[in-house]
Amino acid sequence: MTKQNKAYKFRLYPTEEQAMVIRKTFGCVRFVYNKMLAERKETYESLKDNKEALKKVKRPTPAKYKKEYEWLKEVDSLALANAQLNLDKAYKAFFKGHTKFPKFKSKRHKQSYTTNGVNENIQLLDGYIKLPKLKMVKIKQHRAIPSECVIKSCTLSITASGKYYISILTEYEKEIETKDIEKVVGLDFAMDGLFVDSEGEKANHPKFYRQMLDKLAVEQRKLSRKKKGSSNWDKQRIRVAKIQEKVANQRKNFLHHKSKALVTNYDAVVIEDLDMIGMSQALKFGK
């Protein structure tokens, strides 16, 4: 038996008071992350010529800032601790050459925070989920989580249109069975339609974004005419965000159905290792 992880994503319907706490936690997590990153950069610049002294420097922690910024105590401490872990992971990935140097977080980036399951502080109860600092939050649980799954952590996020979601990471034990590979399919990237398989079948991607271009252009023109920051501008911004979210959801749904069909019908799927971002920049793929 080996331990496996599986995540379940559900829509949340917090009250105004709960939503305010969630948004406050987003801000505190971003603040602590940026504070720690700024301090670590400053320390590195001052001691980069003295590697021995640099190794002895203690890394900043969220607890350090709580004395100066009392309002950090009002949010989930586990969320702040995870901000420190995320920064550590970003640094390790950078020094291994996997990513670029960690950047400061801004309000424009995805807003989210992660809390951990400790002593049953996270529980699912009849259409509600119990969360640290939030108590009982209404949840639309469209699928059941098996009883053998243990909740390890939860990540709360908000979309550009103001919808709240929670991703629940669970852990369970499963016996991995070996399978003989009989049916194999190869997938080749195609500019028109996503991919072509080794049997000549095309994915026939519907091009959801291009279908929505005219409608999106109209709504974006309306947004450009509004005074930024006004209530009408915010309402129009949400209309634009909803269109973009719909396109993203259509893409996800299409890809889920295609991937499910592939793993159902074949024992192995072979794809070419392509740098899609590099190709799009070099060949000017555009949209």
Rank of each mutant, 00 (worst) to 15 (best):
M1P: 06
K3S: 08
Q4Y: 10
A7Q: 13
Y8K: 01
Y13M: 06
P14E: 05
T15W: 07
R23G: 01
K24S: 11
T25C: 11
F26P: 00
F31D: 08
F31I: 03
K35E: 14
K35W: 08
M36S: 12
A38V: 11
A38H: 13
R40D: 07
R40V: 12
T43H: 10
Y44Q: 07
L47M: 11
D49H: 15
N50K: 13
K51H: 05
E52S: 11
A53S: 10
K55D: 07
R59H: 10
Y65H: 05
K67C: 02
Y69R: 14
Y69T: 11
E70Q: 11
L72V: 06
L78T: 09
A83W: 02
L85P: 02
K92R: 14
G97V: 10
G97H: 09
T99Q: 01
F101L: 11
P102M: 10
F104M: 09
F104Y: 14
Q111R: 12
Q111F: 04
Y113T: 00
T115L: 05
T115Q: 05
N116P: 06
N116V: 13
N116I: 14
G117Y: 07
G117R: 07
E120L: 13
G127W: 10
K133A: 06
L134M: 01
M136L: 15
V137Q: 04
H142N: 13
A144R: 00
I145H: 00
P146H: 01
E148G: 07
I151Y: 02
S153C: 04
I158W: 03
A160Y: 04
S161I: 03
K163D: 02
I166W: 01
I168R: 00
E175H: 05
E175I: 07
I176A: 11
I176D: 04
E177K: 14
T178S: 06
T178Q: 08
K179L: 12
D188T: 07
D188H: 04
M191N: 08
D192P: 02
F195Q: 03
V196C: 09
A203V: 00
A203M: 02
N204M: 07
N204I: 02
P206D: 10
R210L: 09
L216K: 14
A217S: 13
E219R: 14
K222N: 14
L223N: 07
R225C: 07
K227T: 10
K227I: 07
G229Y: 04
Q236G: 01
I238P: 02
I238K: 15
R239C: 09
A241G: 03
K246E: 07
V247F: 05
V247E: 05
A248H: 12
N249A: 12
Q250W: 09
K252C: 00
K260I: 01
K260Y: 09
L262T: 02
V263M: 13
V263H: 13
Y266I: 02
L274S: 02
G278P: 08
S280F: 06
A282D: 09
